[in-house]
Amino acid sequence: MTLLGFSSYLIALGTMSGIYALLCLGLNLQWGFAGLFNAGIAAFFAIGAYVAAILASADSAVHLGGFGLPVALAWPVAMAAAGALAWVIGRICLTLQGDYLAMASIGIAEVLRIIIKNEEWLTGGTRGIAAIPRPFETLLPAPWNNLAFLGLIVVLVAIVYLAAERAWASPWGRSLRAIRDSDVAAAAIGKNVAQFRLEAFVLGAMVMALAGALSAHYFKFLGTTAIEPLMVTFLVWVMLIVGGSGNNRGAILGAMLIWLIWSATELLTNRLPAEWITRSSYIRVLLIGLLLQVVLQKFGKGLLPEKPPRLVGERRETR
């Protein structure tokens, strides 16, 4: 592999890790902070991806729009749309606990996938949305444009991470954890359980939508295969469990580690005989499933377990 090839591989690796890190941080807000079992990550990812793609891509005959809007406008709208959907879903479903919320959220994601598949006028159906502009691609020559896009993702991950860390240590995060650990006790001391849950759910969904928007602009094409539950819901769950739920650094570490394993094994399996290459992706899924089991049984709290935060007020009080 040439140096250029290797560096562009690294850029691609970093870009995807960053997108998954955002998904994991979003899931951590919902599951790690608030104990909300969202098994429909793909739904919010898809809303983010499709809204951004329809708004930002050039006018097309095969789907709604595109409206050719700048990404600086398209992405926030995409996040807001996912937030609004999450608010509606949350108002209806967040009274459900554990397994029931998992069933409901998996169902929402599936129905959304069916809509996206069937409503060609809106989403292009299985033909998808093509020619989605990637930021920096006309401003800079390759590979600098890709590097700049990676830089943007790193900045976004950093912003979300810092915000999530602040939230974790804030009274808001503390209340969420109290609710997560015992909603009865939290309600008894006067916490508005439903409101806190809803906020965590909406914020997490917005972060997932940002990841979806970034992914659409990165691949420049968006079809139904991009929102498969395997890659967008279950892989993210594996990442967060492996990294350590309830720990924002764990979420990022899990995303990077699992994506590294996922893509590095692809490099390896591509050297297999031709008849095995088609099957290699199944071996990888099998191994990822096994890895999840091993981590669950041997490191139940993940590689970076949850830690109670240093209290925000602590420093001020000691001064």
Partner: peptide, 24 residues
């Protein structure tokens, strides 16, 4: 003896493993 939700996550893993084994 763990909370049921841990078994749900384990069943995600089993789901991935069963399906990929069948595909394989």
């Amino acid at each position: 003896r763990a909370p049921g939700i841990v078994s749900v996550i384990a069943s995600f893993g089993v789901m991935l493993m069963l399906r990929s084994a069948i595909q394989l």
